[in-house]
Structure formats: C-alpha cells, structure tokens
Design a protein around this nucleic acid. Structure first.
Lengths: 187, 187, 187, 187
DNA sequence: TATGAATGAGCTTTCATTCAT
DNA sequence: AATGAATGAAAGCTCATTCAT
C-alpha cells in the first residue's frame, strides 16, 4: 500500500489536469486518494502548497529523465538528441505530468519562487548548449533564446505525437522531427 | 462609451490572465467593467460561455494579424517570415491575449468544440505550409507536425522576448531567431 | 387575439400550478404569454398582486358555475345535488383552476384579505345549508362545520375522479358518491 | 442538546409553513436552527431533498398516531372512530405538520416518488375499509373513493375546528362530526 | 498520524422590478 | 400602452480549512 502523501500527490495531479485547479475540491482529492480530508492538510498546509509541491516533484522527475543516458564523452549533437528523445519518451510515459506543465507553467497558482526553483534544475542542459556555442557547433544566439526555442519546438513535437500516436510506431517521423530541430539550432 | 459586452470581454481577459479563471469572481469582472452583475449574465449565459467566447474572439483577432501584409505573390519564405514577425508583433501588441492562450489553450475550461472552432481558423497558414512542401522548399514532413513545431518554436521565441524585452530594440536577435526557424523547416 | 391582461392571467395560472409560485419567474410568464416583461408590471403592480388577482378571478368563475342551474323552487336535496355535480363538472372543465386552489388556498402567497373576499362569495351556498337546517332536512350541526365537511368531501371526490378518470364514463359511481355525501349531511 | 439534523427538520417545517418553501432561505433555516449553512447541506444535499425528507418523516409520524389504540378485536365502526378521533387529535397536537400537508401535498416541490412512498403507509387503514366492505358494514363503493371521501371529510372537519377551537372544549360537536362521517360511509 | 463533522465566507446565478424609449 | 436592457439584492450551494477525538 502506497504512502498516503504519495497517494495524495498522484491523485491531485490527475484531477488538476482533468478538471483544473479550482474546479478540484480538496474533498474530492481526499476521497479519490482514499484518505480523510484532514489528512490532506496534515501533509500540505494549504491547497496552494500542494500544487507547488507537485510542480517541483514533477520537475525533478522530468529533469532526471531528460539527462538520462547522456555520457560526458558524447558529442554535442548526440547529447542533444538524447535530450530530445528523452523528452518525447518522458511525455509519453508520464502523460499527466506533461499535461500538468502545459496547463500550469504559466498559471498564477504556481508562485514565482517555485517557478525559479524549477528553472534552476535545467542548468545541466543549459551547459550543453553553452558548450555547443563555444565550439561553434550551435548558432551564436543567446543561450536563453536557444533554450526557449528548443523547448518550444519540443513541446510542439510532443503535442503533435500526442494527437497522432500511431506515428510513433516506427521511428521515421520522430527522426525527421529531430533533424528539423537540429537544423534549426546548429551553427 | 464602450459597448457593455465589449467592456465585459476586455475586463475578464485581463482578470483571467492575472488571477486565473476560478479565482476571478464574476462580481469582480462586473465591477471592474462598470456594469451590474446581472448584465454580465445578460450577455453570457454562464461564466463558462464567457471564457469560451473570449477564446474565439481572441483567436479571430490573432489570425487576422498573423496573415496581415501577406501577398499572394510573395515567396514561401517571405510569407512565413511575415507570419513569424506578425506573431511576435501580435504578442507584444496584445500581451494579455497572448498570455491568455498560454494559460488556457490546454485548460479544461475551454471545451473541445471551441478549441476545434479555433483550429479551423488556421487553414490559411496551413495552406502556405502545404504549398511550400509541394515546391520542395519545405521539409517533407507531415503538415500537422510542421505546423506544431513552428508554433512551438514561435511560442518559445515570444516567451524569450517577453522576459528580455530590451533585446527587441534592434532587429538582430529577432532576425537570428527567424533564421533558426527557417533553417529548421526548410527542405 | 386575446387581451394581454387575460393572456398573462391564463399563462401564470398554468405555470404557477406546474412549477409553483416562486419557481415561476415573471420573465417566463411574460415570454409564454407573448408580452414584454414590462407589460406584466403594467397590469399588475407586483407578482403578489398577480397571484391574488388570479385567486379572485378563479373564485368568481367557480362560484358562477357552482350555482348554475339551481332553481329557487328546487328541493334542498336537488339544490345540493346540483352544487355537488357542478363542482365535479367545474373541476374537470377547469383542471388548472382546481389544482390552483388545492395548492394555494392554504399558502401564504394569498393574503388574508383576498381569502376573506373569496369566502364571501359562498354566501349563496351557505344560505341553502341554513334553509336545510331550518326545515330539519339537514343535520343540526353548525353551518360552518357542515360547509367545511361538505367541501372536504367534494374535494376528496374530485381527487379520486381525477386519478380515475375512466370511472366518470357512466354516472354510477358519481351517483354513489353523492348518495354518501347526502347520507352524511341529511338529518 | 438536539441532534443537528433533527433541529434542521423541525425549524424548516415551521418556516416552510409560515413563509412558503421558496420564500424561506436556507440561510434562515440554518440560523434559526442554530447551525452553519454548510451543515444543512451536509445532511440534505439540496433544499428539495430537505422538503421531501420532511414530508416522509411527517407522514410516518402521522400514520403512527392514526392507528394508535386500535385493537384487532374492535368493530369496524370503533376502529374508524378511533382513526377519525386520532386524526383530529394529531392535527391539534401537531399543527405545523398538519398545515404542512395542506400546503405541500399538492405542490410540485414534493416529487411523485415521495408522494407514492407516503401513500404506501396508508395500507393499514385501507385494510379496515376493505374489511368493512366485505361485511357490508360500509357502502359498496370502490375503496379508493371511500378513502378519498373520508380523508377529505376529515380535512374539512379539522379545518373547521382549527378556525373554531373553542368548539373542541366539549365533545358534542366532534361527536356530531363523527356521526355525519359514519352516516356518509356506512352501508 | 489520521479522522470527518462542522464551519461560514464567498461563489455563480436568478429574478422582480425599473425606466428610457 | 408596450418594450426589453439593465439593475443589484438575494438565493442556493461549495469548499478550504479547523479541531475534537
């Protein structure tokens, strides 16, 4: 049997995505999680604290997956391809988590402190981009811009594959997507 | 003096973006719009109908701007550059509208019918992409994927410039962003 | 084309019976009556005045029917039989009106003054009862009690026939009902 | 201190009778019952559920009183006299409950299912009537009609005594009323 | 830790009524 | 006489949060 805290996080993720934050009563979360309403507030002081905790836990999980199987000795291109593929892989393995970010990254429910903490975790990926620029493999564009373009591109790719899941069966289209991605950022 | 319906839409846009949908009482919308609470419901049967109407009106406005100054005789590249630049221009001219889409495009408050209606309005832009593919100027990737990649890329670009507004003063970085965009999708 | 005032009364009768007084918006009455909301308030200062007017108009109509075809020369029994039959006849000819009394005779929406005015109209029937007592044809019970017993009895009879309409086809059961009625009050 | 649920039922009975259903805010019920508004909705999902529950609880109480002190060995007449007297007794002991039925038995606020459930509880009394018919003590009229006539007659009697309470001091008039009742239904 | 009855502020929505036309 | 957009008080109901157990 799962830890109750864990159970609450898991349940609220699902409900926040399906129904929206304010349209998800804490009583419903408690019920679906199989705990008493009071228990939820034992683990999270407020509903706001709950969604912010959720945000950071998901961010941590995502980052861990994105940098998976990246070797220091890989080329910049290999590293970024791994990140690209890991991103798509994560989105499909953790669909609720991915939708959660789509919905709540820009929402006022997540406070700025939490967003900043989430951003810090991207440092590893930002380093890859900076390395790529130093060696002139990537375009000489500000790192932040390159990062946002890349992230937006990947989000678009994921959105497409979510709506056309059968296209993931063979790798062709995904490889094409990465080619376009790479053409865009390479120097 | 503005039309009351117009006033309600304008006010609710601002408030939904700043405070979130469920954290914005209809009473506050009415108050800020300078109308009685009953008046809001005279024009929009429910709060849900209000946000869906808002979504479509903003979508219409955006599309009109995106295809602005596009001439039939332009090259594909010129057309897509115009769309790219128009997108950034719109985002900066209509910041609330742009943030509204960021927050609510993926939210459950907008129903699927409304989202579909919104999507239909992109047909003009999809045609440009298809023309580009026919003449082998663009990559031979499915139109839907190209579209989503492009849209994601542009969203990222906008996000960057919103956080770094001074970088828009001269055109250099924006031109670089378009170059990257074009490199990504060209054949 | 009907008089608008008439139209409003007719429509509100139907709606008050089917939906209850407070669950029937004046806007709905206006709409169903085919007039503007303002028009309703032109004829009736308030919604309360509307239902009280309705009460009295229906009472008038009912009394007129109850004493119909009663001849001064008839026996007491013949007169009361006529009233009894007229009551059932009225209830079936004016079902909404009858239900209206069932629902609103005891309700606080009708003010006491109106109820008293309605009661006055029964004087003709009360006179028949008093005549019957004088000649010892009816039981020597206070007129008011005889009246209420009779009215209750008739209401019960009507309720039964409303729920068993086919039983009205031949007159047997209705005659039986009157026999019981007469046995109860005769001296 | 009373049970909160009980307190809410008791208070709403009084208020519904005095002010009407829709003219009685749930907030007022809660206030007079000494509970929070939320508590009312904790026990009754909607205001409609509240009034329907009330209807059934009162019906149960009434039936229990009506069949009180009836012995299997009593004659039909004795049994029905007991029911008649019990009815009057109940009406005077529970005046709000009696007025509640007068007002709401025919109202659209009580749904048909509830009304049917209420009717089922009369089976004991219907049996007495059927027994009476078998032994030819009562008129050979359909049971349902006899039942409705009787109920209407009793309601009228109660209405009279409510408006003329001093007449209850000695039993004479009440006995007369029962005589009339019995004359009406006896064979 | 865990419970869930109880709270009451606050929400969306309704609706009788007004009034300029 | 007739209209219907506009009003805003008030309604039913929700829900984050507390607290005695």
């Amino acid at each position: 049997m799962k830890d109750k805290r864990e159970q609450i996080l898991e349940t609220s993720l699902k409900l926040f995505v399906e129904r929206g934050f304010h349209n998800t009563p804490t009583s419903l979360i408690a019920k679906e999680a199989g705990v008493a309403t009071g228990t939820l507030f034992h683990y999270f002081k407020t509903k706001e604290e709950l969604i912010n905790s959720l945000y950071l836990e998901i961010k941590d999980d995502m980052i861990a997956v994105l940098v998976n199987k990246i070797d220091t000795h890989d080329t910049i291109k290999a590293k970024l391809k791994q990140v690209f593929m890991n991103s798509v892989f994560w989105a499909f393995n953790k669909p609720f988590q991915q939708l959660f970010f789509m919905q709540y990254s820009h929402s006022p429910y997540i406070d700025q402190i939490t967003k900043d903490q989430g951003m810090q975790r991207f440092s590893g990926i930002l380093e890859i981009i900076e390395d790529g620029k130093k060696t002139e493999i990537l375009k000489n564009i500000s790192t932040a811009l390159l990062f946002e373009m890349a992230q937006g591109f990947i989000n678009g790719t994921i959105k497409y594959f979510r709506e056309n899941q059968q296209k993931l069966k063979d790798q062709t289209e995904l490889e094409n997507a990465f080619s376009a991605f790479w053409d865009g950022i390479k120097g």
